[in-house]
Write a protein that binds this DNA or RNA. Structure first.
Lengths: 203, 203, 203, 203
DNA sequence: GATGAATGAGGTTTCATTCAT
DNA sequence: AATGAATGAAACCTCATTCAT
């Protein structure tokens, strides 16, 4: 059985991805050379190319795999038992936790999902955005359900509510990232929900 | 008097900046060469370097000047006469209009103001972000005033309300940019305010 | 007038091509680096790329321009006044002279026209071969004319006679190149015609 | 006795050489990697280096062994019983057959025997050319004998006749390879002799 | 003052070869 | 003995910047 070999290879791959994540996050795609990644990961240049077809591929895999982890966690949060409010709170809490423990990826993620990144062929942004929209739909369905259950007020489109919630959460997390003194939020993730839902909940 | 000379130079500078804006917005900083900018602006390479110290300087000036325009317009919107609600509505409408007439700059703006851009030394983002926070403070003061006037409910911090409003507006504008079919918002910029302020306004 | 500039550029181009010809002929396409060409031509690497899109383009231009010179000279030889025999002798003499004064290009030429070169996309070989066949047709028409005039015996196809003559000339020139002691031919280019045409000429 | 071992090894060597021949012929020395040869031969890279010192050695052995086969067959053709004309016809027929059944090697052979190949150190071409000249001498001796026997006209040097015959045969075979529609020769290899010997044979 | 030809550092990528397993 | 992962030198090419004209 060659499973040890394979486990080793997987570990090396993870190592490269971890180093690449750190570097890309710190300096941006174009300001990181393959030499640098190889050096910091303590591999020869050629070894990187055994794992990834080229620099772009390395970046793409990195972003896609990381995003997948994020969205899977978000999806799971929404699937937990509880009423709509509880689901949403769970999502916000999960997002907060993930942000806090993946700070180095956040900027890359935002770059890709907000479309401010031209580093890479449009394809990647498209893929990421597709996944993002799929999640938004899921989030919207929670609002939808809440509205149907009369738990929420009858408010415009559920999708837009999802967009609004998500953007607020993002910006508060970013605020915490950029100016922690202005936003102690992550220590109390629910506060934001209160702000947003004042008035959303049907009295 | 050499004022005609000076006027001409200013026009040339504007021309270069306009071309650079288009190209950087379309392809991103690293995928645009100075050759390309010079060519499209119909100047010699050397001439660009008479106006801007280097590529980074060109980008920096471009972003800063454009942002300044944005924030000046936002500031003016908040200064118009009217109660807090009217000021906020005016701001949202102004932002919508500016976005719609500066589509090519939006992504650069978002990238720089939200820190998802690594194109340039941290300095630039810092400068832009400082200006952004200054505006947020101004926006927060409107909320503050509304709360004090009892026009708004007594809700947490005004700054956070500013952040929340701004992020919602941004994300709806982005949504309109990315998926116009999902968000006809720009045709009715006030709708979003209704969503956001349901519950904010003291009944 | 910028004709001096242009003359200079042309000279530089010629210089690069001359150096490239020497190097490619000596070592072969794959064993010559652009660094080497640049160095020997005393230009910076970047300058080479101002004149030629890439290494392959440099090679292609080199081969095509040189071949064109050859075939033009051959064509002219066949167009000179005189009977068929004289035309053919003139061609053989011309080819001998050109070979002797372009030794460094001969091997490249043979590589391309004989199809033993994989250095470059099939395109180039095709282009060269097309030109070669066009010349063969012209050569064949001389044989044709000689046969019709009853100056030559009624012998199979004129095209094949052209092929035969050309290949004999080539191999004698190569022989002289490789083993001059075995073939003093170039000093007496007509000897070969005698060999080939013994029996061709109608008595 | 380890003869089974040895037989196996020999087979493996043959297998590698066969794959290498195919690949080098199709794409050229520089466009084939050792990885590719190993892969297609279904050996590990390391195993190739057990059989051949390095890439160049593999190529050298390949060319030399293959050429040896060619020239052995040519030599044998000339040694068959019969008068000079029959020997020469036999040689031409043999060469045609060998070419037709070794198409993939032809270009490599021509490249190496005529010096249009720079893939490899001069040494190889020299070795091959030596063998080629040796064969030419043998061919020349047939002409010599024909001249002495008064079967052929008294024509200049026999060596040159050998060169001429060989080059004509080569170019007709190449013509058939490149433009079969222009040369149905291989189906009737003797036709070319008729062309060449019109006038050579003493009436 | 304006030009744009020239520069060359530095980026990405390939692939022959080695050597621990 | 066979393997193939790892290596890293060296190739091609781009582009920000300079400076002689």
């Amino acid at each position: 059985m060659n499973s040890r070999r394979e486990r080793e290879k997987l570990l090396q791959r993870q190592e490269i991805l971890a180093v690449a994540l750190t570097l890309f996050s710190e300096k941006g795609y174009h300001n990181v050379s393959m030499q640098e990644v190889a050096g910091k990961a303590e591999f020869a240049i050629g070894t990187l190319y055994k794992f990834f077809q080229n620099k772009e591929d390395l970046y793409r895999v990195l972003v896609l795999e990381e995003c997948e982890k994020f969205y899977d966690a978000f999806d799971r949060a929404l699937e937990e038992p509880g009423d709509e409010i509880e689901k949403l709170r769970k999502y916000v809490r999960t997002k907060g936790e993930i942000f806090r423990s993946n700070i180095s990826f956040i900027r890359l993620y935002l770059a890709e999902s907000r479309g401010a990144n031209f580093a890479i062929k449009r394809d990647l942004s498209d893929e990421v955005r597709k996944r993002y929209f799929a999640f938004l739909e899921r989030l919207a369905s929670v609002f939808d359900s809440g509205i149907k259950n009369k738990r929420f007020k009858e408010i415009s489109g559920a999708f837009k509510l999802a967009v609004a919630l998500d953007s607020i959460v993002n910006s508060f997390l970013l605020l915490w990232l950029d100016a922690p003194e202005l936003n102690p939020y992550p220590e109390d993730p629910d506060a934001i929900l209160d702000i947003f839902f004042k008035g959303l909940i049907d009295p």
